[in-house]
């Protein structure tokens, strides 16, 4: 197959930068959640976690360098998970 072994090589430096970014975000979420923010705490923690997850997906899991079809599929899956959570909550929020 024509695609075998044809790959984008990610330099070591990128990996290190990404890791540093992730650790900074982790530290940030630990720091922010230790402050009393009330209901905002969950939101902030989840936003930061989503940011970290996106970085892992884009860089470590190579979505940035791969065919766009993978990104579309991942987006579709995330959409599905969010949708079923939202629809399930339609029951609990209004019960």
């Amino acid at each position: 197959m024509e695609n075998n072994g044809k790959h984008h090589i990610v330099p070591y430096k990128t990996h290190i930068t990404v890791l540093l970014g992730l650790i900074v975000l982790t530290a940030l979420s630990v720091a922010v959640t230790s402050i009393e923010l009330g209901p905002l705490t969950v939101t902030v923690a989840l936003v930061l976690a989503s940011a970290k997850a996106l970085i892992v997906l884009i860089y470590f899991m190579h979505l940035k360098f791969d065919n766009i079809i993978y990104s579309i599929m991942v987006a579709f899956i995330i959409f599905s998970i969010v949708s079923i959570i939202v629809i399930t909550f339609l029951d609990y929020l209004f019960r």
Binding site: T26, S29, V30, T33, T41, V42, A45, L46, L48, A49, K52, A53, V56, L57, F60, M61
Partner: peptide, 18 residues
């Protein structure tokens, strides 16, 4: 990385949002 991804969400949900 998937294992890492899951942990990224488990960590705040169980340890941080106190």
């Amino acid at each position: 990385h998937l294992v890492d991804l899951i942990w990224i969400f488990l960590f705040p949900l169980f340890y941080l949002v106190t």
